[in-house]
Amino acid sequence: MPPHYFASMNNPVIRKYVSVDKRSVKVNGTDLLLNEQGADFGEFMKQIYHACSISYLKFFKMDPQSKLGFVAAKILLQDDDRDRFEPEEKAIVLANSASSLNTDEKYFESINDIPSPAVFVYTLPNIVAGEICIHHNLKGENTFFIQEEFDIQFMVSYLNILFSTTNTRKAIAGWVEVDLDDNYRAFLMDVEKEGSSEIQGNFTVDFIHQIFKL
């Protein structure tokens, strides 16, 4: 591993984090919603949508990965004051292992029939980031990385670079994936450049490892 030098004295903080998997939705490590009936992906997403009083018709047109990222981001930013930062100061940096292969396979199945533009548009991993940007008016830095597993050390390093060398003051960052076996996981953090939250000194590789595993 190369050494990581941090260019500035920023003290970024994780203000909130959200995890969604087939068992539950957790906010800051605490259960918000349990999938008690073992509902399948589509059904569980609908339950979350209703439980969180989301009203956004475009949600139903999204592919599974975008639905997953969308609900996680919606819960993450529910109480966020949009106007504290300019849209272009808010970045989104996501990663996963399977890119958009789940939807790629669905699109592939349609090629010899009638190829669907509505499916094709989701055959890129960064579309979920685009959906989140549209709904929350994020106009800052955008990057989607593909990694074998969530590379927390890299994510911390890259966000520190954005905070210290770009206009970025807030970043939605994490992991969003629906893989070819329909396994799914979203883990999103709301990270800000300067700490004003009661949670201090939590933007570390070790801490994120802990909360990612929970």
Binding site: P87, A129, C133, K139, G140, N142, T166
Partner: peptide
């Protein structure tokens, strides 16, 4: 270098060239 998002549409270019 820099990147930015239109926050407008997933497949249509922004009408204001925002991003």
């Amino acid at each position: 270098g820099a990147s930015a998002n239109d926050a407008n549409h997933i497949s249509g270019p922004s009408r204001t060239g925002e991003g």
